[in-house]
Amino acid sequence: MCVTCGCGGGETTIDTGEPKRRHAHDHGHPHGHDHSHGHSHGHDHSHGQDHGHDHAHDHAGDHAGRTVALERDILSANARLAADNRRLLAKTSSIALNLMSSPGSGKTTLLVETLKRLGAVPAVVIEGDQQTSNDAERIRATGRKAIQINTGKGCHLDAHMVGHALEHLPLEPNGLVFIENVGNLVCPAAFDLGEARRVVILSVTEGEDKPLKYPDMFAVADLVVLTKTDLAPYVDFDGEAARAHVARINPSVPVIEVSVRREDGLKPWLDWLTTQRRAALEARRRQIEAELAALDAGVPA
């Protein structure tokens, strides 16, 4: 059972795409890298042990019952691991994007077409699905590195799974890390993965009222991407209504429209990605400037 949140328990597997390991995985012998999450092993994020109170007391007189105040977020273990992921990603000014949507919205197609157009921009992909490595295979066909997480019965990715996936990925300076969450407009909204931005994808074939039906997901979005917009006229998709519904739930979130079928159909999305990379570099510049200022002032950094 996953020590972080128990989601899907020991069913979670990670496929790195390395031939040897996949062979062993196909035979169902868990080892080294195709691990289930039931055992501990070395990696550079901590599993969030609390060190506050690690000695046992003699509570012999306490049998009458008492109240123990906790005042703690229930998902605090996940939040700690997400913070670890965020620190790791910040070391290389990498930008992790958590892509969430219902199944079939075109997440993987959007990613494949994006990767083809990114040229020299470093990018890696973490794929989350209950079963199969189909999506990771589609990504690898573009020449990019992809890790497949299979959650088994689990309905969402969590920070623990993503932390393990990141161990297998080369993080290059200012690169993009796309995390394609399990197709589900409910559960993934609650789990911080350590991403920089949460991107919610809505295809026009799903209907413009999805934001009202699944408000919790749209409420956490930092960007909403409308996909398959070339199909809008055929499915009577009302873009204005869709934007109004998104604004009803999340007034400040930007909404962009893309189509992989049109020549420049991904431009708003590619521009947004550039903005994110730029912001990460600017943050790094500010940090370096602060370090320089501290150095000049004679304060140990």
Binding site: M1, V3, T4, C5, G6, C7, D50, G52, H53, D54, A56, H57, D58, H59, D62, R66, V68, L70, R72, I74, L75, S76, A77, N78
Partner: peptide, 16 residues
Amino acid sequence: QSLIDMIADEARRQAF
């Protein structure tokens, strides 16, 4: 599951 894991840790720490 997360809630119960947290409480189990606390049970060891605070001996209940």
